[in-house]
């Protein structure tokens, strides 16, 4: 069970949250102009990293707001939580 630090409500247990998958996937601004391969890329392809990952969560049984989490997919350690639109904190051990 994860203890997830909601940026607005503080730490709450995982069962209060809904997972929204990989974060920062931008919808193409002009969908009609996008070739099919790029559209498939946007809709279906994911990094699915083994290691640190930025992912979206929604506090479904709390404030019902979305936010982003930096979490490790092997240790499940959580490094940071930040609201949508905020500057992305670097992944631990990197500057990116």
């Amino acid at each position: 069970m994860l203890l997830i630090p909601c940026p607005w409500c503080g730490p709450r247990e995982e069962s209060e949250f809904a997972n929204g998958g990989e974060a920062h996937i931008a919808r193409p601004l002009d969908p009609a102009a996008v070739p099919e391969a790029d559209w498939a890329d946007y809709v279906f392809l994911r990094d699915n990293p083994k290691g640190w990952m930025r992912e979206r969560w929604m506090h479904a049984q709390g404030c019902r707001r979305w936010f982003n989490l930096v979490r490790h997919t092997v240790t499940h350690e959580i490094a940071a939580a930040y609201p949508p639109g905020a500057e992305r904190p670097p992944l631990p051990g990197t500057t990116a």
């Binding site: 994860l2 995982e14 998958g21 990989e22 699915n48 092997v74």
Partner: peptide, 13 residues
């Protein structure tokens, strides 16, 4: 489990 993981363990709930 709803989240991505490579850990071969999941949550109790």
């Amino acid at each position: 489990d709803a989240f991505n993981s490579y850990a071969q363990r999941g949550s109790f709930h």
